[in-house]
Nucleic acid binder design. Structure first.
Lengths: 184, 184
DNA sequence: GAATACATGTAATGCGTTACATGATTTA
DNA sequence: TAAATCATGTAACGCATTACATGTATTC
C-alpha cells in the first residue's frame, strides 16, 4: 500500500526527525546511487505517510523564514518499516540501455561501437575508483555493529563496488570483441 | 526525440520485418532481461515510428483473421538506429530496492533480515545457473562474427552472468553480516 | 467447455521528471 | 549583483503497467 519511496523516507526518519527539504537533500547524497527522488515527490509522499499515521510533523516557527515542518516517525511507522524490510521481494528486470545497445551492435559501425564501449568502461572504472576511496575512508570508522551508520554505508559501498566492477569488465569484454582488428 | 523503446523496436526490425504482436512476443523473450514492454506500448510506438518515416507497414489479408500489419525498417530507420547505438550514454542511477533495504537493515529484525538476504542470494544463484546453461548452449553455435545473432545473445548472457554473480555474492556478504551469531 | 494463442488496439492509473511558483538569506 | 542555499509546495508531461475491449482458432 505504501510506496517504496515512502519506505525510503521512513528509513531515513527512523534515524532522526527531518524536514522535507532535508529528506530531499539526503536523497541526493550517497543514497542517490540506489534511490532517487526530488522534492516534488517528497512533499506529497510525506503528506500520504502522515495520513496513514506513519509519520507526524511539528511546526517550528523561524525568524524571517517560513515555518519548518519537521517530520518524525511514529511507532506504527517503525512497525511498517521493519515489516517491509524483510517482506518478499519479487525480482524485477531492470532496463539497461547499454545491454540493449550490445544486443543490437551488429547494426552499428564497429569502430564507433568500440569507442562507445571503451567510453562506458571508463565511466564505470571512474565510479569504481570513487567507491574504493569511500570504502577506504569507511575502514577507519568502527562499523562492525550492523545498527551503525557506518555499516549501512559499507553495505551499499560493497554493492556499488561489485556492480561497477562487473559492468566495467563486461564493457571491456564488449569493446574487445567489437573493435575491428587492428592492422599490425 | 525517438524513445528508447522505439530504438529497441528498430533493433528488432533491423533483423527482419515483424508484426506488432511478434514484437511484443520478442520483448517477452530473452530481451526481457534488459528491456520490457507490453503490446499496449508497442502498437502506439510503431505508429509514432511510422509517422517519423523510420518504419513502414504492409497490410497482409488473412482468411478468417484480421489483417496483419507487418512492419519493416526503412533506410532512415537504419540510419537512426546506427546513430543511436553509439551516441553518448550518460550514466543513470538505477533504483534498487535490495540496496535500499540493506541501507535500512538496522531497523529490521536481524534473524528476518538474514532470511531475506539468503532468499535473495538464492534467487540470484538460480538465475545465474540459467544464464550458465544458456551460455553452454551458445558455445555450440558459431558466434565469433559480431554480426551474428549468436554474438548478440552471447553479449547479453555475459552481462547477465556478471550481474547475477555480483548480486548473489553481495547478498551472501549481507546475510553473513546480518545474521545473528549462532549459538555453538 | 475452458484455457491459451493469435491479433490489434484504447483507457485508466501510477510513478517519476521537469518546470512553474514564491520568497528570504548567504556566498562568490 | 548573480548564484547558490534554504524552504515548501503545485502542475504538466512522459513512460510503464494494468485493465478494458473484441473476436477467431486451436489445444487440453
Amino acid at each position: 500500500m505504501t510506496s517504496t519511496l515512502g519506505m525510503a523516507l521512513l528509513g531515513l526518519l527512523a534515524r532522526e526527525p527531518l524536514t522535507g527539504y532535508e529528506l530531499s537533500r539526503s536523497l541526493k547524497g550517497a543514497i542517490r546511487h540506489f534511490w532517487q527522488a526530488s522534492h516534488s515527490q517528497v512533499y506529497p509522499e510525506l503528506a500520504r505517510l502522515e495520513a496513514q499515521g506513519l509519520v507526524v510533523h511539528e511546526r517550528i516557527p523561524q525568524a524571517g523564514k517560513p515555518d519548518q515542518k519537521r517530520f518524525g516517525i511514529t511507532e506504527a511507522g517503525r512497525r511498517a518499516l521493519s515489516a517491509w524490510l524483510v517482506s518478499p521481494l519479487e525480482p524485477v528486470a531492470k532496463r539497461s540501455e547499454a545491454a540493449l545497445r550490445a544486443y543490437c551492435v551488429a547494426h552499428a559501425e564497429p569502430r564507433e561501437a568500440g569507442r562507445f564501449f571503451r567510453e562506458q568502461a571508463l565511466q564505470h572504472r571512474t565510479r569504481l575508483a570513487e567507491f574504493e576511496a569511500f570504502r577506504t575512508a569507511l575502514e577507519a570508522e568502527p562499523g562492525a555493529d550492523i545498527a551503525s551508520e557506518a555499516f549501512a554505508n559499507t553495505a551499499v559501498v560493497m554493492r556499488g563496488l561489485a556492480f561497477e566492477k562487473a559492468q566495467a569488465e563486461w564493457c571491456e569484454w564488449m569493446a574487445e570483441r567489437v573493435e575491428p582488428v587492428r592492422k599490425r
